[in-house]
C-alpha cells in the first residue's frame, strides 16, 4: 500500500486519472481507517486529500456552496447559519467530538452509509454535488449520486469538490431527528430530516422529507412530501405522510434495530419534526417545542 498526499487539487486529480481504480480517497479518515483496520478495503493507493484548502470553506451568494472537507464540527457549530439547522443538527450527531472535528461532509457523502446522518439533511436542502476529474466536471443532485448501500456514481477518476445547497426562503423551518438508544455515539436506527415552507396563513407550500437507515441509501419520500403540501399539518395529513413513508421505505432488521421498530417510530417522528419545522418557520404554536 502506498500513500499519496495530494498538495493541490490538480495533483489529486492527476493521481486519480492514472490510478483511480486502485485509489481510496482519504479525508478525515474516520470511516476509512476503520475499514482498513478491519480489512474491508485494501487499496493500492491511499490518496490523502485532507490538506487541500481549495476543498474547504463555505461561499454563500445566492446558493450556498461548501467544500467537501468542511468538518461535522464546523457544521454542528452553525457554519451554515440558521437556515440550515437540520444540517447542523445532523452533523452534531455524527459520533463524538473526536469524530466531528476530523470527519468531513464529503466523506460522509462518499462513504454512502445507509445510516449517514448528514445525507437526509442535505437531501431536504436539494444538495447537488460537483465532481471533477482532470478531464471534466459535472454537477448532479445528491439523490442521483448516492445510489445504494455504500454505492455512488463517482467515477474512479473523479473527486467530490463541492456541495451546493439552495438557500431556503422565508417562513421555512427544518430539522433533523435521530433515533438511537443513547444520548450520542449512535449509528442512526432512523434518521429523519424535514424542511417545510409555509404560506403566511400557515399552509405548507413546500415540503421535503428525507430519511436514513430505512433502506439501502438515504432517500426522499415524494409522496409523503405531497401529503403535507396544501394543508396545515392536520393529523390526517401527517398520517397520510406517514403512510406514504411506510410505503416507500425498505427497512431491515440489523443489530441496531428491527425493521418493525424502524416502521413504528416513523409516524411519531414525522409529527414531531413537522411541529418543529412549523415552530422554526415562525408559524407554529408557541408550545410546539419538544
Amino acid at each position: 500500500m502506498e500513500l499519496r498526499a495530494a498538495d493541490s487539487l490538480d495533483d489529486a486529480l492527476e493521481v486519480l486519472s492514472h490510478r483511480g481504480d486502485q485509489c481510496q480517497v482519504l479525508a478525515g479518515g474516520t470511516d476509512v481507517m476503520i475499514q482498513l483496520a478491519r480489512g474491508e478495503i485494501a487499496p493500492a493507493v491511499l490518496l490523502h486529500v485532507e490538506k487541500l484548502d481549495e476543498l474547504r470553506g463555505v461561499e454563500a451568494n445566492g446558493d450556498t456552496r461548501l467544500g467537501p472537507l468542511v468538518t461535522h464540527r464546523d457544521l454542528a457549530k452553525g457554519l451554515l447559519g440558521e437556515r440550515f439547522r437540520s444540517i447542523a443538527e445532523s452533523a452534531a450527531t455524527v459520533g463524538g467530538l473526536q469524530t466531528q472535528v476530523v470527519g468531513t461532509v464529503g466523506g460522509n457523502i462518499c462513504n454512502a452509509s445507509p445510516a449517514a446522518d448528514t445525507l437526509p439533511a442535505l437531501l431536504v436542502h436539494d444538495a447537488q454535488v460537483t465532481l471533477r476529474s482532470s478531464a471534466a466536471s459535472r454537477t448532479v443532485p445528491l439523490q442521483d449520486f448516492v445510489v445504494g448501500r455504500r454505492a455512488t456514481t463517482r467515477g474512479p477518476d473523479e473527486l467530490l469538490t463541492a456541495i451546493t445547497l439552495v438557500t431556503p426562503g422565508e417562513r421555512t423551518g427544518d430539522v433533523y431527528l435521530k433515533v438511537g438508544r443513547r444520548s450520542a455515539m449512535e449509528v442512526a436506527i432512523v434518521g429523519l430530516a424535514m424542511r417545510l415552507a409555509f404560506d403566511p396563513d400557515g399552509t405548507v407550500n413546500d415540503a421535503r422529507i428525507a430519511l436514513a437507515s430505512v433502506g439501502p441509501c438515504p432517500m426522499r419520500s415524494a409522496d409523503a412530501e405531497a401529503a403535507l403540501v396544501g394543508g396545515g399539518l392536520e393529523p390526517d395529513s401527517i398520517d397520510a405522510a406517514a403512510d406514504a413513508v411506510l410505503r416507500d421505505i425498505t427497512p431491515m432488521d440489523d443489530v441496531r434495530g428491527s425493521a418493525a421498530y424502524r416502521r413504528r417510530v416513523i409516524p411519531g417522528l414525522l409529527r414531531k419534526a413537522a411541529d418543529l419545522c412549523s415552530q422554526r418557520a415562525g408559524t407554529g404554536s408557541p408550545d410546539g417545542e419538544g
Binding site: L3, A5, L26, G29, T30, M33, I34, A37, L46, H48, E50, Q98, T99, V101, V102
Partner: peptide, 10 residues
Amino acid sequence: VDSCIYSAAA
C-alpha cells in the same frame, strides 16, 4: 481526535 482511527500519514 481518536488517534486509533487517525492516519499517521495525515
